[in-house]
Design a binder for these strands. Sequence first.
DNA 1: TACACGTGGAT
DNA 2: TATCCAAGTGT
Length: 354
Amino acid sequence: MKFSNILTQWYLLHKRDLPWRNTTNPYFIWLSEIILQQTRVDQGMAYYFKFIETFPTVQDLANSSEEEVLNLWQGLGYYSRARNLHFSAKYIVDECKGEFPNTYSEIIKLKGVGDYTASAIASICFNESTAVVDGNVYRVLARYFAIETPINSTKGIKEFKLLAQELIDSKNAAMHNQAIMEFGARMCKPQNPDCSICPLNESCVSLQKKKVKLLPIKEKKIKIKKRHLNYVALISSDKKTILKKRVGKGIWQNLYEFKLIESESKIEKADLLSDLFFTDVLNGKQIELTKFNNDEIVHKLSHQHLFCTFWVVELDGEMSNGVHWNSIDDYPVPILIHNFVEELKRSTIFSIFE
DNA sequence: TACACGTGGAT
DNA sequence: TATCCAAGTGT
C-alpha cells in the first residue's frame, strides 16, 4: 500500500476528536492554526474556545481592539501571533470584503501566516493540494526515508517541502495533511516511539538502520542570554498602581508591566534606591521599599533566562491616576507579572490595605 | 540568514 | 540556573 494510504487509514482509526476537526470554516481553522503554532494541543485548547466564543466571526475579531485580543491571548506566549491575528482580521474585513481568502497564494499574504499555515488552511478548508511541513512532518519524513539533512537548514527546508509535496495525495489533500501530522504527533513521536506497532515499520529506512533515535537532525542550538530584572510595584493608599506598556522591539511587545530596572547582576535595596527612578519619578518622597521575593524568580523564555526580583513600594497618599489593583486583569501582562500580582494579592503586604 | 519570539510539560 | 520540544513566522 502507498505511504499516503497507510497514513490516512491509520488516521481514520486513531485520530483525536479535536474541536477544529469538526469544521472547515476557514476563520476557525485559521484561529486554531495560529494558536497551535509552537504550542501543544493541551495548552491551546482553552484559548481556542475562548476566541471562538468571544469572536464568533472575523468581523468580531476585527472590531475589537489589539489590547482586548492580547488580553485574551495572555499566558499563551509568542504575543506577535495575537497582534498579527488582529491585524489580519482587519485586513480581511477591510481589503477582502470580509471574505476569507481561499487559495494558498492569497492566504499566505496574511500577516502571521507562513508556508505551513497557508498550506494547512488551503488544504483543510479548500482541499488545495499544498503539503504542510510542520515539526511532525519533518520528523516522519526524516525517519521514514532516513534523511540526514538538518531540518532547520535552508537546504533541508526546501528538500522536505519538495518531498512532502511529492507524497501528498492530491485528491485527498485535507485528510492526507492532517493524517501525517497526527501520525507524527501520536505514533512517530519525538521521544520513545513504539516502532513495533507502527504501520510503516516494514519500510521505514531509519528503523532498518537503527537510526530512529538520531533523526531528525537539527543544526546547532541557540544560546540563552541571562538578564536580571527588578520590578518595582506601587501600592497607593487607595490601592492603585502604575502599569507601563512595553513598546519597541523585544519580548512582550505591547504588554503591560510595572516599573522595570534592569541590572547586570542581582542587586540589593541600596543599589535600587540609588537608582534614578527614586530621585526622578518619586521626587524625594518618603517611601517604604520591600523586597517581595528573597530568591530571584527564574522565568525561562526560549532565548533568555530572566532572574527577577519584585519590590513593593507602599505610597502614603492616594493616586489620582493609576490602575486599581483589582483592575489589573483588564490589561494584558506577561505571565510572570500575572503570577506576581496574584501572589501579592494573597500576601500580608496587600491585606493591610483591605 | 540567523536569530528572536513564551509558556509549560516530559524526561 | 538541565534540556528538549510543541500544528512556525518575521525580520
